[in-house]
C-alpha cells in the first residue's frame, strides 16, 4: 500500500458518500445518470466476484463489500424512492455498446483464459468507460449542481491517483499490470476535459457550465 493508492481509494469512498448524500438530502436524483450507476454495479460485481473465496486483506475485503453494496443501494434508490426525479429523456447513452465493447476487449486482452480472469478484465474495461453516460448527460444539460460535479471530480481523482500508484509499484514492487494500467490511463483521459472545465469554473467559485 502506498499513499497514491490509499488516496485514490479514499477519493472513491468520498465520491460515493457525496453521491448518496446529494440524493438523500435533496430527495432527488436529478442530474445523475442511472446508466452510469448500473454500469458501476456491474463493474463491482464482476471485479469482486471472488470477494468471499480469495482473501487479500481485511482492507480490500471491507472496501469491496462497500463498493458492491453502495452501488446497488444507489441504483435501488434511483429506481425506487426517487424514480420520479430522474431524467430519462437526457440519460440516453447506449450502454449496450459499452458492455459489448468491454466483452470484446476482455476476450482479446486478458491474463488467462479462465472465467474469473475474463470477468476481471471485462470489469476493468467497463470501468474505464462507465462514466460516459454521466458525462454525456452533463453535456446535454450544459450545467450541473456543484454537488454532482464534485461527485464526478472525486471519482476521477480516484482513478487518476492510481496512475502514480502503478508507477510506484512498477519501480519499488516490480509489479506491473498492463491491462489495469492501459484501461486506467484511458479512463483518466476520458475525464481530462471534465477536469479542465472543473478547474476553470468550480475551483474559481463559479457555477459548472460547459462553454
Amino acid at each position: 500500500m502506498n499513499l497514491f493508492r490509499l488516496g485514490g481509494d479514499l477519493a472513491h469512498l468520498v465520491s460515493i458518500f457525496i453521491l448518496l448524500q446529494k440524493i438523500t438530502a435533496n430527495k432527488s436524483a436529478a442530474g445523475i445518470s442511472i446508466k452510469t450507476q448500473i454500469l458501476y454495479s456491474i463493474v463491482y460485481v464482476t471485479r469482486y466476484i471472488d470477494v468471499f473465496t480469495k482473501w487479500i486483506s481485511l482492507y480490500t475485503f471491507v472496501m469491496k463489500l462497500i463498493f458492491i453494496a453502495s452501488s446497488f443501494y444507489t441504483v435501488w434508490l434511483m429506481h425506487n424512492t426517487y424514480k420520479s426525479t430522474q431524467n430519462p429523456q437526457i440519460d440516453t447513452f447506449k450502454i449496450r455498446y459499452l458492455i459489448g465493447g468491454s466483452i470484446i476487449m476482455a476476450a482479446i486482452f486478458n491474463h488467462k483464459l479462465t472465467f474469473n480472469e475474463l470477468v476481471w478484465s471485462f470489469s476493468i474495461w467497463l470501468e474505464s468507460v462507465a462514466i460516459l453516460p454521466q458525462l454525456f448527460m452533463l453535456q446535454r444539460t450544459g450545467e450541473a449542481e456543484n454537488i454532482t460535479v464534485h461527485y464526478i471530480f472525486a471519482l476521477g481523482i480516484y482513478r487518476a491517483l492510481y496512475i502514480p500508484n502503478w508507477v510506484y509499484r512498477w519501480i519499488f514492487d516490480q509489479y506491473f499490470d498492463y491491462i489495469a494500467t492501459v484501461a486506467g490511463i484511458i479512463q483518466t483521459l476520458i475525464y481530462s476535459d471534465f477536469f479542465y472545465v472543473y478547474y476553470q469554473r468550480v475551483m474559481k467559485g463559479k457555477k459548472f457550465e460547459l462553454p
Binding site: 493508492r5 487479500i56 480490500t60 472496501m63 491474463h111 492510481y162 516490480q174 509489479y175
Partner: peptide, 10 residues
Amino acid sequence: DNSYLIHDEL
C-alpha cells in the same frame, strides 16, 4: 513473475 494475477488492488 505473475504477481499481477493476484489482483490485490480495488
